[in-house]
Computed example of a mutant assay.
Amino acid sequence: MRDASRGAVVSVAVVLLCLSAVGPVVGAAGERGSPAPAGQGVAAQAQPPPAFQSAVDPDVVVMRAAVDGNGTAAWTVEFRVRLDDENTTAAFESVQADVRENASAFTSQFATGMARTVGSAENRTGREMALEGVRVDATTEQLPQEYGVLTYRFTWTNFAATDGERLRIGDSLSGLFLDRESSLVLSWPTDYGTESVTPDPDETGNGSATWRGPADFGSNEPRVVAAPAGGGLPTTALAALAVLLVAAVAGGGWLYRSRTGDGTEPGASDDGATGATAVAESADDDAGEAADDSEGADGGSDEPPEELLSNEERVIRLVKDNGGRIKQQRIASEFDWTDAKTSQVVGTLREEDAVETFRIGRENVVALPEESDL
Rank of each mutant, 00 (worst) to 15 (best):
M1H: 06
D3R: 04
V10S: 04
A13C: 08
V15Q: 08
L16A: 07
L17P: 02
L17E: 08
S20T: 05
P35H: 03
A36T: 10
P37H: 01
Q40V: 00
Q40C: 00
V42F: 00
A43T: 03
A43E: 03
Q45G: 00
Q45T: 02
Q47V: 01
P50R: 03
Q53D: 02
R64S: 11
A65M: 13
G69H: 15
G69S: 15
T72A: 13
A73S: 15
A74I: 10
E78Q: 14
F79K: 02
R80N: 12
N87W: 02
A90M: 03
A91W: 00
A91E: 11
S94A: 11
F106Y: 12
T107L: 05
G113A: 02
M114Y: 07
A115Y: 00
T117A: 10
G126R: 00
R127L: 03
E128T: 14
A130R: 07
L131D: 04
L131P: 04
E132G: 01
V136F: 06
E141F: 08
Q145K: 14
E146N: 14
Y152M: 10
Y152I: 09
F154N: 07
F154S: 09
T155M: 06
W156K: 04
A161I: 00
R166C: 01
L167Y: 09
I169T: 10
D171K: 02
L176G: 01
D179M: 04
S187A: 13
W188N: 10
P189C: 08
Y192K: 07
G193I: 02
G205M: 12
N206V: 12
S208T: 12
A215G: 06
A215D: 06
E221A: 09
V224Y: 07
V225M: 04
A226D: 02
A227E: 14
G231H: 06
P234D: 10
T235A: 15
T236Y: 12
L244D: 15
A250N: 11
A250Y: 13
R259M: 08
G261R: 07
D262I: 04
G263E: 03
D270F: 09
D271H: 12
T274W: 01
G275N: 08
G275S: 12
S282Y: 12
D286R: 15
A290W: 06
S294M: 14
G296S: 12
A297T: 14
D298G: 12
D298F: 14
D302C: 02
E312T: 07
E313H: 07
V315W: 12
D321P: 03
N322H: 14
Q328Y: 03
Q329T: 14
R330N: 11
R330W: 07
S333W: 02
F335T: 07
D339T: 13
A340C: 03
T342C: 06
V346G: 08
D353Y: 10
A354M: 10
F358L: 08
R359Q: 15
R362M: 08
E363F: 05
A367M: 04
P369M: 06
D373P: 01
L374E: 09
L374Y: 06
